[in-house]
Design a protein around this nucleic acid. Sequence first.
DNA 1: TGCGTATGTAAAGTATGTTTTACATTGCGG
DNA 2: CCGCAATGTAAAACATACTTTACATACGCA
Lengths: 67, 67
Amino acid sequence: MRNRIHELRRQGGWSQADLATRLKVSRQTVNALERGRYDPSLPLAFAIARLFGLTIEEVFQPEEDEA
Amino acid sequence: MRNRIHELRRQGGWSQADLATRLKVSRQTVNALERGRYDPSLPLAFAIARLFGLTIEEVFQPEEDEA
DNA sequence: TGCGTATGTAAAGTATGTTTTACATTGCGG
DNA sequence: CCGCAATGTAAAACATACTTTACATACGCA
């Protein structure tokens, strides 16, 4: 699953730690999401989209062959 | 997290087993999702929304106090 | 040079999502 | 009444998401 977290975070001028605080997750989780190590849970995906004022579909793009 | 899976499935005239097949998950997973036992993974949430021709936001509604 | 901030990563542990097997209950059509 | 389809549920096993602690690297700046 592709995501625009890195791009959106930088537009807001935030560090990974800043974003983690706002999302109430660890900095390592933000780092892992940005680096595509795994996908967020659905509740976390909602929190991320809302924080940036976007829909889930605007932040996350499933790859072609994905579920 | 609230979801409209049960309602949407019935509108399509499908059994839980039918839906499970289309989503490539087990019938128990569909049952658990409909009964609100847990939230789907983000990829599965996308698959569900796409199957019904809706956005994630149209199918899933985070509760007020949720992440 | 040396310090502080930001980022990447790893290992161990906990929590959540999903599958498989199996069984119980309900309701409907014969 | 009987049989069958649909649904609910449980336990064990496994996969994925997330936390904590800890350390490494890179960069800018006093």
